[in-house]
Simulated assay, not measured.
Amino acid sequence: MIEAVMLWNEPNNKSHWDPEVDPEWVRFGEMARAAGLAIRAENPTLTRVLGGISPIDPLFIGRMAAAGVLDAVDAVAVHGFPLDWNLWQIHEWPEKIAEIRAVTDLPVWVSEVGVSTFGAEEVQLWGLARTAELLVGRAPRIHWYSLYDLPREWEATTRHREAEGSSYYRHFHMGLLRQDGTPKLAMEEFAKHTPALGLCQWFHYQDHRLDAAVDWMKRLGVTHLRTGLSWADSFRPDALAWFDRQMEALVDFQVTVTFCFTPEHRGIAPHHSSAPVDFREYADFCAAMVRRYAPGGAGPA
């Protein structure tokens, strides 16, 4: 079921890693390297992926190579949203992947790519078709973000929130499904590109959408899913019961599971984006999750 584990999410984006706490990514490098080695010790066949970077920055990948992180992973990943947030055009996707391939021999995954319907659903429809045209065959994994819109009563994971203006509100319109579960225009187009296109869908603690999401993914022909198990959530009541339910529900998919989010009480700063007080605790969490959900030689051949 689990084909890969991803070490953090967008480590070069301050929404997910605080550069004031760790301005040179020294602590991140120690943490990621320790986690990669701990995962390999639990299951040597499991693919380890460095958390998808946003922005796409070859200098950051070079920094990770110098820190020894790339020696402890089997692939790197990038995120791109050129119709919503990036300062480059959608047609530049091949060049962006080439920039990363120029600085590492590791496979380059696209673990998040998407288009919001903030302005119009027709934009997402066109953007999905163009994205598939540009990326299918150029990356070993492509995860479309996302299946569901983010519920409006929730918060997007960003340090800026409403200060971003319209950029913040685009976070809430990235789904192929609206919040109420009804499909948007791009849904039929997406189904034309599975299984080459997978999905990225984050499930929050006790997420009410889990079972419906599984039904939709099966109907759409999705085989590859990227989701997450939150280190911070592991301290909630009945956390393991929720993790078990989530992973059991996803048993029919090839899952890339992302380990992310610092527990506030274990961070140098009390925030999920902070470097932890002890990076070995993150490595221990990763090892424990692999031991529970992908033990031994349970990874892909």
Rank of each mutant, 00 (worst) to 15 (best):
C286G: 08
D207A: 04
Q124I: 03
D180Y: 08
V136C: 02
M64V: 00
E30N: 11
V222F: 13
V5M: 10
H265V: 00
A163F: 15
E3S: 12
L210G: 10
I39P: 01
D149G: 07
T131K: 03
N43C: 07
A41C: 05
E112Q: 13
I2F: 02
A32F: 14
A156F: 00
E99Q: 12
A34I: 01
D74S: 04
A139N: 01
W85P: 00
E10S: 05
A288P: 01
W231M: 07
C286N: 02
E121D: 05
Q124W: 02
I61H: 01
T258H: 10
E264T: 03
P295C: 15
S230Q: 12
W126S: 07
A287Q: 09
G137V: 08
T45H: 13
A98L: 06
F285C: 11
D18C: 04
P263C: 02
G228S: 15
R280Y: 14
Q179S: 14
R291I: 13
D180I: 02
A67P: 00
D105K: 06
A72E: 03
V222W: 14
H160Y: 08
W144G: 04
W242H: 09
N86E: 09
F118M: 06
M31I: 09
S54N: 09
D252G: 05
D180L: 02
D18A: 03
S273H: 03
M1K: 04
H173M: 13
R236S: 10
L150Q: 08
L83D: 07
P151F: 06
E162W: 02
G137A: 05
T258W: 10
P44E: 06
G297K: 05
F81P: 02
H143F: 15
P270A: 14
F285Q: 09
P23S: 06
L125S: 03
I39S: 02
H204C: 06
A4P: 09
A213D: 07
F172T: 01
G228Y: 08
V136D: 01
A38N: 04
M217I: 01
L87Y: 11
L128D: 05
P183W: 12
S15C: 07
P58F: 08
R219Q: 14
F279G: 02
A34E: 07
F190P: 06
R40A: 12
N13Q: 07
K192W: 01
L125G: 00
F259Q: 06
T131V: 05
I100K: 06
L147P: 06
L46V: 11
Y205S: 03
L106F: 08
S54Y: 12
G29S: 09
R152Y: 15
I142T: 10
T158N: 01
L199R: 11
D252P: 01
P19R: 12
T45L: 13
W8S: 15
A287C: 13
L106T: 04
R40P: 11
P55Y: 08
A67V: 03
Q201M: 09
Q206C: 10
